[in-house]
């Protein structure tokens, strides 16, 4: 018993250290956003600002309308994308999980193949902009991320086929329930853990997506919060590293300060941290069965 107690202590100490290592850069970022700009350039980033300042946040507050709109867009695409993506994935995964489904192997391979092969950026872009006219629409921020590739579908399928007892489905069918009713009344409620897991993954990927915005959106009023962040950082980098003849210094004057960048990052992180605990309950459970076999 004594050694076991000892083991627990070691385990806790190790885990506390590791957790701290994960948390630590976030604290630095958070403090930097509250540090006076001159203090950052003079003394560097630190855990305790030599001079506190909320300048960065008041600077952002001045752009409240831009920020609010970007937030709105991020929230909107995250909600719609997660719900629709989850629905399509589950609908696709369920028949694939049924051992009696005709041409199941072929269909599963078609899903699996998308994991390994893709057509590349330019053709994808042309399909969306030319066949579907999605440039500069909210759809362009939603549609390309719905399934991205078949990975989530395969995870859900594994969950269905391992954790939903076939006899329940069969008896429901014999009792005269339609396939849709079975799916809706029996399969989905039994699969909450995996749905929550995939839901969280979709939420994270929509919330953090900057790439689709970079490709499909040129209209500033459609920028998501990540696009605002990304353009700020990458514009700075571009001006630092590329020559535009004599003109770059004029452009450089419009670059926001260190602390503002940090404050933007904080604003980008906080919401995802807030919703995470609500999903976490299901997270491990969902992966338990889902991940056993892709």
């Amino acid at each position: 018993m004594k050694t076991n107690q000892m083991n627990q202590t070691i385990v806790h100490i190790l885990l506390i250290l590791l957790s701290a290592a994960c948390l630590f850069p976030f604290l630095l970022l958070f403090m930097a956003s509250f540090t006076d700009e001159q203090a950052i350039v003079q003394h560097g980033y630190s855990f305790w600002p030599s001079e506190f300042s909320v300048d960065a946040y008041s600077y952002l507050w001045n752009q409240a309308s831009t920020m609010a709109r970007s937030y709105g867009i991020t929230v909107l695409i995250t909600i719609i994308g997660t719900v629709v993506g989850l629905l399509i994935s589950a609908l696709l995964a369920y028949p694939l999980s049924r051992k009696d489904m005709p041409i199941r192997g072929l269909l599963a391979f078609l899903v699996f193949f998308t994991l390994l092969f893709n057509g590349g950026l330019v053709p994808t872009y042309l399909v969306y902009t030319e066949l579907f006219n999605m440039k500069n629409t909210l759809l362009a921020l939603i549609v390309p991320g719905l399934l991205t590739n078949g990975f989530f579908v395969l995870l859900i399928r594994s969950f269905f086929s391992t954790s939903i007892p076939v006899p329940i489905i069969e008896s429901a069918y014999i009792d005269g329930a339609t396939e849709f009713k079975i799916f809706y009344r029996i399969v989905l409620p039994l699969s909450l853990p995996i749905l929550a897991t995939i839901g969280l993954m979709l939420t994270i990927s929509y919330w953090n997506d900057w790439f689709n915005g970079l490709i499909y959106i040129t209209e500033p009023s459609l920028y998501s919060i990540q696009n605002l962040l990304n353009r700020m950082l990458s514009n700075i980098q571009f001006l630092q590293q590329n020559s535009l003849g004599g003109n770059s210094s004029q452009a450089a004057a419009t670059i926001p300060m260190n602390s503002v960048r940090m404050a933007m990052a904080v604003i980008g992180i906080v919401p995802i941290l807030c919703i995470y605990p609500f999903f976490q309950k299901y997270f491990v459970k969902g992966l338990t069965i889902g991940a056993v076999k892709g």
Binding site: F117, N118, G119, P123, T124, L126, V127, P144
Partner: peptide, 15 residues
């Protein structure tokens, strides 16, 4: 789902 994969993944593969 399949329609989506065809548009999003298979059509661009022509590229």
């Amino acid at each position: 789902g399949m329609a989506y994969l065809i548009v999003n993944n298979y059509l661009p593969m022509l590229g």
